[in-house]
Simulated assay, not measured.
Amino acid sequence: MDRYLKHWVVATVALVLGALALNLLVDPLWYGRGNRLTGRNYEFNERVSKANLFLQDPARYDCLILGSSTSTIVHPSLLAPHRCFNLAFSAGVVGELVPYARWLRAHGAKPSLVIVGTDYVNFDARVDDQVDVPDFVAHGEAPPPLWKSYLSLDALLWSVLAVLDQSPYPKFYDERFEVVVRPDAGTFDPEGLRLSRRTLEPARVARYRELHDVFPEARFVGWMPPLSAWHLAELERTGTLPNYLRSLHALTSVFDEVYDFALPSDVTASTGNTYDGRHYGNEVNARLTRRLAGHEDTFGVRVDRLSLEAYRALYGEALQAFRAGGQALPSTPVSGPPVP
């Protein structure tokens, strides 16, 4: 009996050590350099993994990127000379960004620039039901230690999936922890797209003011990620568009600069550069990131330089052109000085 017990103990220890070794090599929660086997890092738990990555060198960064999955695509390397850290995560809403910003400040973040993805759904009060703040963030603590995380079955499953390249997502993070959309992500089919009416409240801009107040010394740049022209046509059909525009324009009272890349254009009237009409491919993502860095482009509109009436008129023209078959879609330069 003792011999069987010894064999069981040896086998158990071997399995545990093997699992730990695999987790350390794949590093699914980004305590170190990430996946040293394939170089692909998957978004299994961005709310924890990005906190681990930040804590490796908090003093390095003078810029933060916050938002949802549509902000994960912003490449910090294209925002040089700023040293930006991208703490955006899938399904992130402003009710989570505020406690994360406080956590970042408590752990040494002193940004001179903060770039915030301002997905319009944040102006719907129902998104407060989606708030998912980890306990360590709520209490201003560090994430769970490496040994505790990497002795878990969850981490082992993530590591195995990473080795097998079986991520459920159409994108991954490369060796620099910047998002790459997979070439097999697919293309958008707008056929049958139907959106329900949302009640958007411009007064919810106060949540973004809370966010700004965490880093009052920083320059804040807000931006609306691209949406397919079909999504915008649906917002118009459901009667959501008027408050959509009022809500996004209200951001100009909080942020120093506000950009809108969802204005119907030749980019968003195409189906081959996005896999779902909300998340766009690598070329589009690089283009909008460079625009945020101050490069000249005709993609998007600088909202803080427009009155609400002019903003509405621009959307009216763009949607009319889209309905007419995409001919002469307005192309509005968003020229201006580079982000300092």
Rank of each mutant, 00 (worst) to 15 (best):
K50H: 13
S49V: 01
V48G: 03
L87V: 06
R102Q: 15
L79R: 05
L104M: 12
F89R: 00
N52V: 00
L79N: 07
S68V: 05
L104I: 11
R60S: 14
E96P: 03
N35C: 08
K50C: 00
L55M: 13
L53I: 00
V48F: 07
F85M: 14
Q56G: 13
E43C: 14
R105K: 14
L79V: 08
R40I: 04
W103K: 11
A91N: 10
L66Q: 01
R102E: 15
F54A: 08
S71F: 12
S90H: 02
V98T: 12
E43K: 13
I65S: 05
P58I: 15
R40E: 15
R102I: 05
R33I: 11
R105C: 10
A106L: 07
S68M: 07
V74K: 00
G32E: 13
A88W: 00
G108C: 06
T38G: 03
R60P: 07
G108A: 11
G34H: 01
R47N: 00
L64P: 00
H75W: 11
A88P: 02
A109D: 01
A109P: 02
A59G: 13
A106E: 12
P81V: 04
R60E: 10
Y42K: 13
A101D: 01
F44P: 00
D57H: 11
G67D: 13
L79Y: 05
L64T: 12
R102K: 14
V48N: 03
Y42S: 15
I73C: 12
Y42H: 15
G92L: 08
F44M: 02
N35D: 04
L78Q: 08
R105V: 05
F54T: 07
S90Q: 09
A91I: 03
R47H: 03
P58L: 14
R105F: 03
R36I: 10
A101G: 04
I65L: 08
R83C: 09
L29A: 04
V98E: 04
G92D: 08
A106V: 11
F85W: 02
